[in-house]
Computed example of a mutant assay.
Amino acid sequence: MPGDRVKKTRPRPRVLVVGFAGHQGTEYLPIVRESADVVGGVDPAPAASPLADAWGFPHYDTLGQALENVDFDAAVVTVPHSEHFPVCTQLLAHGRHVIKEKPFAVTEREARHLIHLAQRADRSVFTLLQRNFDPVFRFARENLARIGTPYWFSYDYHFNLAHPSTGWRASRERARGGVLLDMGYHLIDVLSGLFPEPEPPRVHSAFVHQYQEMRDRRLEDLVSLMCSYPSTGLAGSLRVSRHNYEKVEHLCVLGTEGALNVAPGVAVLHSVGGLPLERRTWDGPKTDVVRSMIAHYLGHLDDRYYRQGHLQSQLTTVRTIDGIYRDRSRERNKLADRCA
């Protein structure tokens, strides 16, 4: 009717899924399709072709083939750690946005190069980190100031796997690191969000191996970190492992006016004496968090302000982890020199 305002709807983004036949890729695929049109998939695994046929999109063994044949806006990338950098650089060189599994990059050098390419191409590189979209972690970020000045934190995250790592995570060449890079990336990203600092914290680390084959491959089964932030006086501990007696995640932050405790599904603010002041619970399915995360990133592909903040936060996380690994490498080299 005359005078009615016509509501314009944004076209659904066209997405290429890279590494879609793996565990993470098959988890994300149906959720990506809710907010985007999946126009192709790349995966050399034998299971990839029938899976693509079942979902109704063309399948390619290599990214180069897909870039030659498919027109798309963004790629959702779920590949082993060793493949992240070459896949992302190729996508950015062809002017495509990237939404990828962690880590953003393995080394600080790779991270800075990706940021340079993203800025030059005017494209986003977003990292899939679910805790940033989890309601209890959001509650923690929004209410952290209520505990006064934080002075201590402890963060534990453990799996209870009964056997050594398998698949690409058991390969030094493909995993590029052990639990610190794999599981610990999530935790250090959370801490970087809660305690933003211009420089990474000072870290003392202990790497532990339950299985001899993992020691031989230099893939830690457990890492323990002691962190300090000189500019604020904050300190804390972080422990991550794959072979604990139970699966657990627990973050505790102590402040001058109270405490904050976060565990899966619940966050609690406490007074100085320990009295619970406010509790936030959430018992929704994991898929709801994933759905919110992917929809958010797809909706912000062209948001340069949001993009810049995300890139800088990921650089901080990568710098912290890369610095820990480089310190361990220097210690190992010194020990080898003494023993020579």
Rank of each mutant, 00 (worst) to 15 (best):
L63H: 05
E83Y: 08
H23R: 15
P11C: 00
S35P: 00
I188A: 05
E246A: 15
K7A: 01
D43P: 01
C339Q: 13
D303L: 11
K334Y: 13
S224A: 15
S49Y: 02
E197C: 11
R280C: 15
I324L: 00
G273C: 06
Y229D: 03
H296G: 03
R319N: 01
R138W: 02
I31N: 02
R131Q: 13
V262R: 08
D4G: 06
D53I: 04
Q130I: 03
T232E: 05
I147G: 05
Y157A: 09
R330M: 06
E197H: 13
S205Q: 14
A145V: 07
L225S: 04
L187Q: 14
E213Q: 14
D37F: 03
M226Y: 10
L194V: 04
R10I: 11
A47E: 11
A206E: 15
D189Y: 06
A105I: 10
I188T: 10
H116Y: 12
H250D: 12
L161C: 07
E197V: 08
D303G: 08
S329D: 14
H186Y: 06
K334Q: 11
A45N: 11
A54Y: 06
V203C: 11
E197N: 10
H163L: 11
H81Y: 09
K7Q: 03
L269Y: 04
G193V: 02
R319Y: 00
A48S: 03
Y28V: 01
T9Q: 10
R5M: 06
